[in-house]
Design a protein around this nucleic acid. Structure first.
Length: 635
RNA sequence: GCCUCGGUGGCUUAGGGGUAUAGCGCGUCCUUGGUAAGGACGAGGCCGUGGGUUCAAAUCCCACCCGAGGCUCCA
């Protein structure tokens, strides 16, 4: 059953026309109005037919809960078929609706709109945070507190128990300064911390300033990195050679970093059985978020992170306390989340994305906190190397009050590490699977925030997946699990880089990608045909991704195009270079608009410079042919 | 998913019931060039898809698909 609950100043309806499934009604029933009402728009679904009573009681429980929270005394039960594409039979529908009406009518003033009629209605929604809520109900589902699982995607659809907790456990918003002071977020002075202010606005008051397309959407296409794929589902992109190269480098880099901290790389399936006992309950609760596919007679769903596969693997493993902390990582290509259509934007939010997902099994909370601190620092370092600096993101730390009181110094240190104020969200009780989490949020050109790196301390899933380790005394214990995505989604890192450079260009700077990620690192432009041999000689001497613009165009035009491609080093060779054996290099990083910085140097000097700049970062060769005349255009 | 706006050669776009605009890119030719667009000619279009209205639809109407913004949400 699908429920849409609207707390309204009033609701009124009037029947217009009957449909073939219309119930017979008296004239008095043909219109109705309720003041200060909670309206429950309801679509009864096929699954409800299996247990009509169960569906009724679950729905009634939900409605009562919300009515209590919003202090509504009047309830309108309103059949609304459009909430579902899998409707029950009309007979079952009417039975459920009547059942709900009867069950509620003792304690509330209840009206029910007739079933099977076209109706005109007017509703005035109050617009407060709880005034619009939706619920999916599946009858006969055990209630319990296994309310969530790995991955942030579950937040919205967390089962009723957790939702109840969320509504009562209100969020306390603070700003934590490096001196350990906890300020009220509402009254904090954000002067000098503009981006944090934007982020806090985005998080708390949900304020949106601008109404234009994000710059990275045009850039990802113009730089021939990525594009929409009309032949697939929305949010599933195609990546051209340059985009694939960048992704590949980023993926390799993050995996290398996790390997350095001892993570074992594994690979787990993309799809799982919906009826697997451990996963089933969870999935019944969050079907809307999943891509589900039918495979012969089995119902499968696509993973939205690596948690499933890794936890199932952990479950089967024999783990000693000597192996802890035990880390596993996978570069999930892809993680799938069936986000709502309106939420998809360019590379910022996708339905299929590449995310490093590392899990650390720790002996106890003490060990988990120690790891949390280390991984916090690793995330900062990883983003920094990728090209997203501490100044480019804002930190959010979320925890329970209890956790804070026991670990004040630790939390304060997190703010000290980044040496700037951070946003804090605190809850009185825990209603997610974690007790502590942080994210680094990139704030883009349009003041929108999106999460990159994150680490969470998970205190539920070891139990759910029955994961244990053997302690020194021979007893089996539950580990505490950390979820960590050191960089966040790879596509989102690219989005961040593009947005950052777009902002730089806006402010009069020259945009470019980090050298180690630039698809072409050096472009050689021969002035005339007779300089081609020397151009090839130079290209051979350079140990990097170097290409040659051998097309029939003027030098001016080739320079211009190299600039539009954000190429870090542009080398022009003509008679004088051939004679001196040098190259004339335009250094983009040091240039200003209309003011290129040109330096004459030897190929060896250029090599040394590039080697120093890309030291320690992964390398791959050119992703397109060396000669520009031989390259196809992708756009 | 809901609301608003949009979809015209590969890309960016003009137009808006009756031969479809231009620029870039592409091809051929001329030009052999020194740091952000040299010149000429040419090819290329089921005007997002499907219905409807009309003598006639790219144009008006409806539905759907895709994109952008808002709500919501997140890696």
């Amino acid at each position: 059953m699908q429920l849409l609950l609207i707390h309204s100043d009033y609701i009124e309806y009037e029947v217009k026309k009957s449909t073939p499934v219309a119930e017979k009604i008296e004239d008095s029933f043909k219109q109705g109005r309720l003041e200060e009402a909670l309206t429950a728009f309801i679509a009864v679904e096929k699954v409800d037919e299996a247990n009509v009573e169960g569906a009724i009681s679950k729905a009634v429980e939900e409605i009562r809960n919300v009515a209590t929270q919003v202090k509504a005394e009047n309830i309108m039960v309103y059949p609304y078929a459009h909430l579902s594409s899998d409707l029950s039979s009309p007979k079952a529908g009417v039975a459920v609706l009547k059942g709900i009406e009867d069950a509620l009518s003792g304690d509330y003033t209840v009206k029910r709109a007739p079933f099977g009629w076209y109706k005109a209605f007017k509703i005035s929604c109050k617009g407060h945070p709880l005034s619009e809520l939706s619920r999916s109900i599946v009858p006969d589902e055990p209630t319990g507190k296994e309310s969530s699982s790995c991955g942030e995607a579950v937040k919205e659809e967390v089962v009723s128990e957790a939702l109840k907790a969320e509504s009562t456990a209100k969020s306390y918003w603070h700003v934590l300064t490096p001196d350990g002071e906890l300020h009220d977020a509402a009254t904090f002075d954000f002067t000098g911390h503009d981006n944090l202010g934007k982020f806090v606005d985005y998080e708390i008051s949900k304020k949106r300033a601008v109404e234009k397309a994000p710059p990275h959407v045009e850039l990802m296409r113009r730089l021939e990195l990525a594009d929409y794929e009309p032949g697939s589902d929305s949010g599933n992109m195609r990546y051209y050679p340059k985009g694939r190269l960048m992704k590949s480098l980023l993926e390799n880099y993050v995996l290398e970093e996790t390997s350095k901290v001892g993570a074992m790389e594994v690979e787990t399936p993309l799809m799982y059985d919906m009826n697997h006992p451990t996963l089933k309950k969870y999935l019944d609760r969050f079907p809307a978020r999943q891509y589900s596919i039918e495979s012969d007679k089995r119902q499968m769903f696509l993973r939205f992170a690596a948690c499933f596969g890794q936890f199932l693997m952990n479950h089967d493993m024999t783990i000693s306390y000597k192996n802890l902390p035990l880390k596993m990582v996978e570069m999930t290509r892809y993680s799938f989340r069936k986000e709502q259509r309106g939420e998809l934007v360019g590379l910022r939010r996708l339905r299929a994305f590449t995310m490093p997902d590392m899990h650390s099994l720790c002996a106890d909370m003490e060990g988990a906190i120690d790891q949390f601190g280390k991984q916090y620092n690793m995330c900062i370092a990883v983003l920094d190397k990728i090209g997203i600096k501490v100044d480019d993101f804002e930190v959010a730390i979320r925890f329970t009050r209890e956790f804070y009181n026991e670990n004040k110094d630790f939390i304060t240190n997190l703010a000290k590490t980044v040496d700037k104020p951070v946003l804090v969200e605190m809850w009185d009780t825990r209603f997610f699977y974690f007790v502590l989490k942080f994210e680094f949020n990139f704030v883009d050109a349009l003041a929108k925030a999106s999460a990159l790196s994150t680490v969470q301390i998970d205190v539920e899933n070891a139990d759910r997946y029955d994961i244990n380790y053997i302690d020194s005394d021979g007893s089996a214990n539950r580990p505490v699990i950390l979820h960590c995505s050191p960089s966040g989604a790879i596509e989102r890192c690219i989005y961040g880089l593009l947005e950052k450079e777009a902002m730089k260009a806006e402010e009069g700077g020259v945009p470019m990608l980090p050298l180690w990620l630039s698809p072409t690192q050096v472009r050689v432009i021969p002035i005339a045909d007779k300089h081609m041999d020397y151009a090839m000689l130079v290209a051979d001497k350079l140990n990097c991704r170097v290409d040659i613009d051998d097309r029939e165009d003027t030098v001016g035009k080739k320079i211009r195009e190299a600039g539009r491609e954000w190429i870090p080093y542009v080398v022009v060779v003509g008679d004088s270079e051939v004679e001196s054996g040098t190259v004339n290099v335009t250094i983009r990083a040091e240039s200003e608009p209309k003011k290129p910085v040109k330096v004459e140097m030897s190929p060896d000097e250029l090599n040394a410079r590039i080697a120093a700049e890309t030291e320690g970062m992964p390398y791959k060769g050119l992703c397109l042919s060396k000669m520009l005349s031989q390259r196809p255009k992708f756009l």
